[in-house]
Nucleic acid binder design. Structure first.
Lengths: 347, 347
DNA sequence: TTGTACGCGTTATCAG
DNA sequence: CTGATAACGCGTACAA
């Protein structure tokens, strides 16, 4: 709010040129020790801080990456975001955030802003893409001319960027096999939405494996991504069919949906896991604290996010064509499917 | 990565001066329609995006606020952060994030970075302050010369900035009264750490109210802020005293601690809420989904965070001396204290 | 309505 | 080892 002190002020007071001040600032060695100390003294005295604007204008670097994601109060995205920004900071990069609210998608304005600020990389998370694929291709092409792009998302022909995703198909198949081993034959998948690119893989995985096992077509039921939608999904699912056809196990889109489902099941007077097995996904912190502890899929969120940043920064150093990386997912068996404690595998 | 196209390129190709391009960009009206269209066409054709560096250098505005907080994978901070950044974006401000890891505190380097980037406001959350109060005063004084500062924190003589906090003392007192009404006389507070400025208010509130009610000194037990520390705290607390002296109710530092406590209590074979009442704090999303649903304190996190941003931006428009704002906290009664359903108050 | 010229704060390139 | 000066890209007086 006061008049900003600039490199000129320092130079004048130290009786040197601005070039020398710059050298001191950058720690160049070819400065006489005596001069260096004098300059440093003036810098400290003024509490001088250089301007990122001027530096950026000069050398073009913002030393900042952009992270674009849905509301981070979803604990899954919160963890992705926390790990990603931590990794970026450790690598000496700042983080600029753009939250995409629920009624919004990534549009030109977001791309414009990323370019406007000359960010040095963009990390996209979540189902935040526009539907119009032409628009999407165009946006990414333009953005890609300015900075590398990584998306935590299943690969897609229109997604011309580095894609990191989990083996959600395989992970859902192993969930089905787990339930099958425990004797379950009628398995339902709840939550998600097939409208989102990423969402389909999970449901498809369940279907695939059930077919393979020769089971009846699964009772699918779309819903959403949070706990209340889990409540609604279970309610609609079970009230919509005779009791003798009820599934004996539920696979939820994620742990939040599972949490909601468990609540409704309890309210309906069912005992878990005896009357209904439940499997979540994401292995969030609360899984081991609910009753019964929730079997879930560990998506290795922390490592996933850090890997994304590493790839982003690597691509920033030397550009590469788009590629895809898939991370494994691990079934974490707890007690929500009725497994005995002896067989229990802790994370 | 290509050569950046500048306003000069646009001016040249459109056959006008850079001043005119600027006018078109800024939407000034005193430009002939025909000229405007011609310029706009060239802009679109090149996909030209101005440089925030140059603009910032010129007018000194970054249109960005900084948010400094602990790891956002703590759901409480995740929600604060989500709401704050949403509010900032709605007000046309970008968000720059600086996460403070657990083994770190806010130091000079953070302040330097905020100033370096010429941010237009700083929002601090969580117990991320350095212990040395001299350092703290100095840092805030320097930072305050450049931008307004808001801290989501209890006021403190060394915190020379706008402070927003919840009435944690009062909130804990109402929790105690609630338990007292239900017949509880031995109440323990678990979690937190008195080393952190903010943390003491909660424990103090419990103590204050218990004294007022003429109850025995509460069994305090420090611990931490997450679910595992809740497990440990309960374990140490109960195994450290004869069963006939056990408290009949626990007030947890926050919902995470409560979650951990409930798990351990269940593992010890206790029935909730009959054998032990539990109250959490923060009213996180999972409170109504655990079994039994957890009575907690609604800190109005969303509004709290949005208010912080509003005050920050207001102070940015016209600077004000430091002041303090306190938000109320509301007890949300669920079933973890044994209240009958008829009395149950939903959020 | 449009153009010219300068300043914004810094770094890099030369010359000395 | 140090200094002068030209970029960097944009906005804004001021002049035309």
């Amino acid at each position: 709010m006061d008049k900003t002190v600039t490199i000129y002020d320092i130079a004048r007071d130290a009786g040197v040129s601005t070039a020398t001040v710059t050298r001191v600032l950058a720690g160049h060695k070819n400065v006489r020790q005596q001069t260096r100390e004098r300059v440093q003294r003036v810098i400290d005295q003024y509490g001088y801080t250089p301007s990122a604007f001027a530096r950026g204008l000069e050398n073009g670097h913002s030393h900042t990456i952009g992270i674009i994601l849905p509301k981070v109060n979803n604990p899954y995205f919160a963890e992705l975001f926390a790990s990603a920004s931590d990794e970026a900071q450790r690598s000496g990069y700042s983080v600029w955030l753009r939250q995409i609210s629920d009624d919004e998608t990534v549009g030109d304005s977001v791309v414009e802003e990323l370019i406007y600020r000359r960010l040095e990389g963009a990390l996209f998370m979540g189902g935040i893409w526009d539907d119009g694929t032409d628009t999407l291709r165009g946006m990414l092409r333009k953005l890609g001319q300015y900075m590398p792009i990584v998306a935590l998302c299943a690969p897609h022909p229109d997604l011309q960027c580095i894609c990191l995703h989990n083996d959600l198909n395989g992970c859902m198949r192993s969930a089905v096999r787990h339930l099958h081993t425990l004797g379950h034959r009628r398995i339902a998948f709840i939550g998600g939405s097939s409208k989102v690119l990423d969402s389909g893989a999970r449901g498809q995985g369940v279907l695939d494996e059930m077919r393979l096992l020769g089971l009846e077509p699964v009772c699918m039921h779309e819903g959403g991504y949070d706990a209340p939608s889990g409540e609604r999904a279970v309610s609609r699912l079970l009230h919509g069919m005779p009791k003798n056809l009820w599934p004996t196990a539920l696979i939820a889109f994620n742990d939040l949906v599972a949490l909601g489902a468990m609540k409704t099941l309890r309210q309906m007077g069912l005992h878990l896991p005896q009357d209904m097995a439940v499997i979540g996904c994401d292995n969030q912190f609360f899984c081991s604290f609910v009753d019964p502890p929730l079997t879930s899929m560990n998506l290795h969120t922390d490592e996933h996010a850090r890997c994304a940043i590493r790839e982003l920064l690597a691509a920033q150093r030397n550009p590469t064509p788009p590629f895809t990386l898939m991370h494994d997912a691990t079934l974490v068996v707890r007690e929500s499917c009725g497994v005995k404690l002896g067989y229990r595998k802790l994370d």
